[in-house]
Design a protein around this nucleic acid. Structure first.
Lengths: 242, 242
DNA sequence: CCAAAAGTGTTTCCGATACACCCATGA
DNA sequence: TCATGGGTGTATCGGAAACACTTTTGG
């Protein structure tokens, strides 16, 4: 969650008055990425109180009245992490009264997946420190962000089996082994190589490329996710599953 | 969505001022019930502009700063429809800028299921007209409530197959035929009677009662959902499915 | 005795699972 | 030649789907 001090410098102070009290509204992003060591989560170090010095989810206040909440999270993630064009979907809205010690804050959390090329995140224009953490070794988090992360993980694990979202964590071109280990990392269990390949290839959502990987050992055939064909299949009643 | 005029009478006018503009926050309920004719949705007739005379989802403003958003929807539904103790779960948050013509309003939508005994809804203390509509024959709805309903239906249809939420739409004691026709109404297709019974009984989440129904024709055995056993099964890795 | 709803088993088929060895490449 | 990762086929098992007649009850 962004601290508002940043913006107080930029904007001319001006007050807004309403007949009834209103909660502040924020957006927070649960941003996952995949590395060789497993599934990672992007966190931001807080530079101001409350929770100064703690790690927190990237995000910020929804205080532009002409910007949708979906746009707000996109912009905040860009400002704080320089990541653009990621897969983004609404996760859950957290609305208990005391989740922020300052005042009533309701937060719309989003779930995001980034390609490995974005794993080298620079601190964004907000100049806060951004870092990737193993999802199994997270530091203490500010606010109720541990709950938000839990919800995000639950969603990722539930979703990856029924919708082809996992591809968002891989480069455009990938090998079947990369694809399989991605599933293994997320689901937390080993899969059988032959069965996995049989199944995923039978679905017809992978387009084989005329290229080979250049990693150590034998070269592997590269594939990409065939978005067009996937959509056609869905239209004819196809359901992606595991 | 509730119109705020109701409350202006009750509260002493007093203004609330913030440094940054804030969207108003509302909650809306997509409330489903089951009748002999199929799946029904609860709507409220709007008594004031905008959309005066239109049908809309029950709901209202979140303007008590010490009440969680989850509590707000519970209270609003009770005020508007006299329904208490229903199954309630957060659905989605709608946050585009122009969904309310008056001003920026962000709405947290909830998904609710009521027992048949609650199908005789009285207008609540708000004295608005409440009525049940076939989900396939809905009137034009106020705001973006058609989108909200679409999201709710999607959720219901997706969820009913993987979690035992359907029981929330039946009386405590029900027959297997009632259970089956409930699924048929929601999923929109016929199921095989013998396969259905085999499967649902094999799961072990139904507790047979020593009572029989008293409807026309042969008497049917009554069952109830065995919540306790279901939870135990879940702990040991069981997954409810279809 | 007729209408209405309840109840009951078996066979077939397909997808899920289990399982082990050879191949290509670079060091 | 060795280490590393890539690639391939078959047999078994279990759950899903298809399918029709008898029973109980009230009118």
């Amino acid at each position: 969650m962004s601290n508002r001090n940043d913006k107080e410098k930029q904007k001319v102070p001006k007050n807004f008055t309403y007949k009834y009290p209103r909660p502040a509204l924020t957006v927070d992003g649960v941003v996952f990425g995949l590395s060789d060591e497993g599934l990672k989560l992007l966190l931001i170090e807080r530079l101001a109180d409350p929770y100064k010095g703690s790690w927190a989810l990237p995000g910020g206040f929804v205080d532009r009245m002409d910007e949708s909440v979906d746009d707000a999270i996109r912009r905040e993630l860009e400002e704080e992490t320089n990541i653009t064009g990621l897969f983004l979907e609404q996760l859950y809205t957290f609305g208990t009264p005391d989740r922020d010690p300052r005042e009533r804050v309701v937060s719309v959390a989003y779930f995001a997946l980034v390609k490995p090329s974005d794993l080298n995140v620079q601190a964004g224009s907000d100049a806060k420190k951004a870092e990737w953490f193993h999802v199994e070794q997270l530091p203490d988090l500010a606010f109720d962000h541990a709950d938000v992360v839990a919800k995000g993980l639950e969603r990722l694990r539930g979703k990856v089996r029924y919708q082809p979202v996992g591809f968002e964590l891989l480069p455009k071109k990938f090998t079947l082994t990369q694809l399989q280990t991605m599933y293994e990392h997320i689901l937390g269990r080993k899969l059988d190589k032959r069965n996995f390949r049989k199944k995923i290839l039978a679905m017809g959502v992978l387009r084989p490329l005329n290229k080979l990987s250049d990693t150590g050992g034998r070269r592997a055939k590269l594939y990409r996710f065939d978005q067009k064909n996937y959509k056609n299949l869905v239209k004819s009643g196809f359901n992606f599953e595991l």
